[in-house]
Computed example of a mutant assay.
Amino acid sequence: MATMTQSIRRSAIGLGMFAVITGGTIAITQALTEDRITEQAARAEAKALFEIIPESAHNNDLLKDTVVLPASNRLAIDGPVTAWIARQDGQPVGMIMPAVAPDGYSGTIKLLVGIDLKGTVLGVRVISHRETPGLGDRIETRKSDWVKDFEGRSLGNPAPREWNVKKNGGAFDQFTGATITPRAVVKAVQKTLIYFRKNKQIIRAQLNKTPSELGPAITPGDLIEQSLNVEQP
Results as ranks from 00 to 15, higher is better:
residue 138 R to K: 14
residue 27 A to F: 14
residue 169 G to Q: 13
residue 10 R to Y: 14
residue 152 G to V: 02
residue 128 S to M: 07
residue 74 R to C: 07
residue 214 L to F: 02
residue 80 P to E: 10
residue 219 T to M: 13
residue 88 Q to C: 11
residue 55 E to M: 09
residue 113 V to R: 07
residue 3 T to E: 15
residue 174 Q to V: 04
residue 45 E to W: 06
residue 106 S to Y: 08
residue 32 L to P: 08
residue 123 G to Q: 02
residue 196 F to C: 13
residue 52 I to Y: 01
residue 95 M to S: 12
residue 45 E to F: 02
residue 27 A to L: 11
residue 221 G to T: 05
residue 64 K to Y: 00
residue 40 Q to N: 12
residue 148 K to Q: 04
residue 136 G to E: 01
residue 55 E to P: 03
residue 44 A to P: 07
residue 119 G to D: 11
residue 96 I to T: 08
residue 59 N to L: 11
residue 138 R to L: 02
residue 68 V to G: 07
residue 14 G to W: 08
residue 131 E to P: 04
residue 134 G to K: 08
residue 29 T to H: 05
residue 52 I to R: 08
residue 28 I to R: 09
residue 21 I to V: 15
residue 79 G to L: 10
residue 33 T to V: 12
residue 4 M to I: 14
residue 76 A to F: 15
residue 42 A to N: 10
residue 97 M to W: 11
residue 14 G to I: 10
residue 107 G to N: 07
residue 225 E to K: 15
residue 43 R to N: 13
residue 130 R to Q: 14
residue 134 G to L: 09
residue 61 D to Q: 11
residue 70 P to M: 08
residue 69 L to N: 12
residue 72 S to R: 04
residue 25 T to R: 03
residue 223 L to I: 10
residue 46 A to H: 10
residue 161 R to C: 06
residue 216 P to N: 06
residue 153 R to H: 10
residue 107 G to V: 02
residue 186 V to Y: 01
residue 232 Q to R: 12
residue 135 L to P: 03
residue 53 I to H: 00
residue 189 V to Q: 00
residue 193 L to R: 02
residue 185 V to W: 01
residue 166 K to D: 04
residue 26 I to G: 09
residue 175 F to P: 01
residue 152 G to A: 12
residue 126 V to S: 06
residue 208 N to G: 04
residue 231 E to V: 12
residue 59 N to K: 06
residue 146 W to D: 00
residue 70 P to V: 12
residue 130 R to A: 14
residue 219 T to A: 11
residue 81 V to E: 11
residue 87 R to M: 08
residue 125 R to E: 00
